[in-house]
Amino acid sequence: MIYRIGQFICRIVLSMVFFAKIEGKEHIPANGPVIICSNHKSNFDPPLLGSYIKRPLRFMAKEELFTSKWFGPLITKLGAFPVKRGTGDRGALRKGTQILRDNEVLLLFPEGNRSKTEEIEDGLAGAGYFALKSSATVIPAYIKGKYKPFRRVTAFYGPPVPLDDLRNEKASSQEVTDHIMTHIRMLRDDVEENNR
């Protein structure tokens, strides 16, 4: 209930302030485990990616955000779970894997941190780890635009990333992440080409 209310409020704010637009929602499977992997620009990214789709998103957030007596429980109900940044947080890895086993949707930002430029940086191995530890469909996403009042921001969802060959070849987590990042960049290039 709180999640749906949060979605509604975020849609209003994002639509009115940032003229938010979403394209490619049809690529997200209606059921089964899904990993959405996106470039990362702002703290507004999770609400943008989650507010306009039917399926609830689960996502990692730095553990410091959960120390507040009111904010921690709130973001937990909005789909967040804590991660210790800069470490191989086994608890967060187990939690993410369980989310996918429960056939939920896990949102990841493989770059790890918000990009200070418009470039899409290399991704960390975590995204590949979750892809290999599950049968999840991996959906690339690309966020275009800057979060400035009355300037449009658009989230694009692309077709699923083909992973069968890499899974069969027992590729490393980093190799799978690199493959996913290639598809995010391909989606960006398609978007930029179509908007010229």
Rank of each mutant, 00 (worst) to 15 (best):
I180V: 13
V34D: 02
T182S: 11
A30H: 12
N195V: 06
E119A: 14
R167L: 15
E63Q: 13
F8T: 14
V176F: 10
L78Q: 03
G24A: 05
L78M: 05
C37N: 04
V153Y: 03
H40I: 02
G50A: 04
N31A: 11
G50S: 04
L57F: 12
Y157C: 01
L187P: 01
M1R: 12
F44W: 12
S135N: 15
C10S: 15
R196T: 12
I139C: 04
K146W: 08
P56M: 09
G112N: 05
P140C: 04
I5K: 07
E175A: 14
R167H: 15
R58F: 00
S135G: 12
T182Y: 05
A30G: 13
I139D: 01
G91T: 13
P159I: 06
I184V: 05
G6C: 06
N43E: 13
I99T: 05
G126K: 04
W70Y: 13
N168L: 13
T117E: 04
Y52L: 12
R151S: 15
A141P: 09
R4E: 14
E193R: 14
R58I: 00
E111D: 00
E192G: 04
K62M: 06
E23S: 11
S134I: 02
P159F: 08
P162Q: 09
D189M: 05
G32P: 05
S38F: 00
G6Q: 01
K144S: 11
I12L: 15
A92N: 03
E193T: 13
E111P: 02
Y52C: 09
P110D: 12
L166H: 03
A20P: 00
L124D: 06
K148G: 09
P149A: 11
F66Y: 06
N113R: 14
Q174W: 00
